[in-house]
Design a protein around this nucleic acid. Structure first.
Lengths: 222, 222
DNA sequence: TTTTTTTTTGAAAAAATTATTAAGTTCATA
DNA sequence: TATGAACTTAATAATTTTTTCAAAAAAAAA
């Protein structure tokens, strides 16, 4: 479940936002000013932040600055009563991703959250869809045109990994580390064998596993 | 240099946008409706799209849909005269990343472009763009007019090296050192053979590999 | 123009890398 | 603990890339 931190001093507005987000399946933690907000941010894993700008003690811009200072690359949406160009500019420059003027339209907020999460590739479902191919990470299910393809766990993870960053070249070492584990001491050619099996089992028009000689493998979406 | 496609039927507005973006160091290609826009998108490597919604022939939403259908995950900003909730929702749902109401504030547009490019991590490092040629060092991909050109690693690295310092003359020895490695003991003529293969594979108007007799090779941008 | 030097080219050998096969090992589970 | 599926390893086959070489071509010098 995706966790959103809502930082807003106006209690009523915060309630509205929180309720709506919860209704839409997000887990919420909340704070009434930037100071508490930052504290909660530090103590919790958070997927996205929604914060007001003008707040007592620590304001929204400062909060954003602090978060970015930690090099945390998570989506941030700023809310404000002021529609001044100056504010907008300041927020974007600080590292905010989106900027919404109050009163907040909840439907729009939800859309923006979705868009941001998607952009940041924080997909809640761990589902990969591409044309006729459907992969569900949780249940390790792979369907092609609704037909179940039986992949072993290693095969599944390997393919899922490659697919989730198309075009990126993965070296055998990288794959061994990320799928077999960093402590794994497997033979590099093991990867080849698994690639071969995946290729045997899945041969569809949507993508292809390309061998990049001398480097590794990558998936290309066609 | 980052390339932006601007699709807008209002000639005057388009001019303003194009001029401003060019002044800010972007390379621009433009179209007056979604149909031409899509065509240009197909023929060029593009980093970001700015498109009007209401346009003759093919509108902005259709353009976005088509682009996303190709699974192209590039940032798209939509412009519109209407600030209707319906439009906004439709645009976001279609896969647009940002939405701006006319009249366009250029400063704001520039900020949004920056934010989106950053978000998409389209940072110009390790990417070489020159007209129809696009090279991505990380994925060792070489595209000409969106068509994949298959280069071997040595060919890729060699070309990338030459291109990244146009006009600079590289001696064979230098190239052997920098690409083959300082411990390499290869024959100097090996470089020639690779140059030959690159020339065979890539012959476009944008650049040329020039032989500098007695010295080595250099790339000249045309 | 002729000679010399250098580069280009094509082809083949050599080297490097990957794909495939098959056998062996591990591991969960009945 | 016997079984079968999953995984690993190792050897060999196949493929691709890289290198080398020498003849042809081109450019520069005499």
């Amino acid at each position: 479940m995706l966790k959103i931190l809502v930082v807003e001093d106006d209690y009523r507005l915060r309630e509205i936002i929180v309720k709506n987000l919860e209704k839409n399946g997000y887990e919420i933690i909340q704070a009434s000013n930037g100071e508490i907000g930052y504290q909660m941010f530090e103590e919790n894993y958070v997927d996205l932040i929604i914060t007001d700008i003008m707040m007592p003690r620590v304001d929204g811009n400062t909060l954003v600055k602090r978060v970015r200072y930690l090099n945390k690359d998570i989506p941030i949406i700023m809310l404000t009563a002021l529609e001044s160009y100056y504010d907008k500019e300041k927020s974007y420059n600080n590292g905010a991703d989106d900027y919404m003027v109050k009163p907040v339209n909840m439907k729009e907020l939800l859309l923006r959250i979705k868009a941001l999460l998607k952009r940041y590739k924080i997909v809640s479902e761990n589902i990969f869809d591409l044309g006729n191919l459907h992969m569900d990470y949780k249940s390790k299910t792979c369907l092609i045109k609704q037909n179940q393809i039986t992949l072993t766990i290693k095969e599944f993870d390997l393919l899922y990994k490659l697919l989730s960053s198309p075009n990126q070249i993965f070296t055998r070492e990288q794959l061994l580390n990320e799928i077999w584990g960093y402590d794994s001491e497997s033979y590099e050619r093991t990867v080849d064998t698994h690639i071969k099996r995946i290729r045997e089992k899945i041969s569809i028009k949507e993508f292809e596993i390309i061998t990049v000689r001398g480097l590794g493998y990558k998936v290309v979406i066609k």
